[in-house]
Nucleic acid binder design. Structure first.
Lengths: 175, 175
DNA sequence: CCTACCGATCGGTAGG
DNA sequence: CCTACCGATCGGTAGG
């Protein structure tokens, strides 16, 4: 067997792009097939259903995010909250820009934990930890709505700026 | 004539809710009609097309936002950028929480202008004005995805916290 | 606002 | 992976 399952990956990749660009409902099975230069019905040789494709994509995105967050927090395990939050933001931007899926794939707990830790050691200030985490996360997830790989900013540049903005939104003072 | 055009408003209201909840493509003309207890085809006595309904909704949301922003900037016309941005954030939270439409209805220019002014007078700092405006705006638009009128936070409280977070994300220093 | 209907397209199956 | 097809549903029209 040569590259077992690689066709299935291609289907997921293509479908992910189309779902993101046009939405799940507005993307037909035939749209996906056309992008792969096969007939619509031929897709069913590889997938059970259209929903099956969506689940597979979401699973993959969630796993990628978890890996990114694990790596980010692992790399800077005992570092201060400032660096940990920066790592989390970078990981999130990376996932969102490289696999621009539904923004609903976010894990608020990690952000909340870092912010809580940062407040405890006096590195951050926030009058509502949950809201602060949500503020930052929705801004990050919003990247998926406007980011274009061929745009004026690279994902790395976006990450740099967003790390800065996020950190300052939690800074001690704004005067 | 009694309440001329009120049926059309009902259609817009119902469609707005359905589009927001399920997306435009996933909402059928018959879904809209069912919510009004009429036949699908009967909708066409009031509207020209499904797209026509969408345009009408977006127009209305945009107008509401413009009014909110105008009122906000008008109230504090000659004030410093800090207060103007605060007013803009408050207006945006108000619109987003009271008319939770598509988040795509945003006017980045106003935010960009205020940030530019703030930088000019030394009230704000941002290494990329456009990105800073986007960061704040996407966080604001994200409110529509989680805000519930019966939730733990009132729209006013959300506005207060978001004003604070936004201002600090543009603050002079984060150390 | 209704009934009755149109052509097009949908997700999916049969059989090869 | 193909051709050929299915029932269901889509947005929209005709005529009242």
């Amino acid at each position: 067997m040569i590259e077992a399952g690689s066709r299935r990956r291609e289907i997921d990749d293509v479908a992910s792009e189309l779902f993101h660009a046009n939405g799940y409902a507005a993307t037909s099975v035939r749209d996906i097939a056309r992008a792969l230069d096969i007939q619509g019905a031929s897709l069913y040789a590889h997938v059970a259903s259209k929903e099956d494709v969506l689940f597979s994509i979401v699973d993959r995105a969630a796993a990628a995010f978890e890996r990114g967050a694990d790596a980010a927090t692992g790399e800077t395990q005992s570092a201060d909250p400032v660096e940990r939050l920066a790592a989390l933001v970078e990981a999130h931007v990376d996932v969102v820009t490289s696999d621009p899926q539904r923004a609903s794939v976010f894990r608020p707990r990690r952000f909340r934990d870092v912010i809580t830790d940062g407040i405890a050691v006096g590195a951050f200030r926030a009058s509502d930890t949950n809201l602060a985490a949500t503020f930052i996360l929705t801004a990050l997830n919003g990247i998926a709505t406007w980011y274009r790989p061929d745009g004026r900013l690279t994902a790395d540049r976006v990450a740099d700026h967003y790390v800065d903005l996020a950190l300052r939104s939690l800074s001690e003072d704004h005067r």
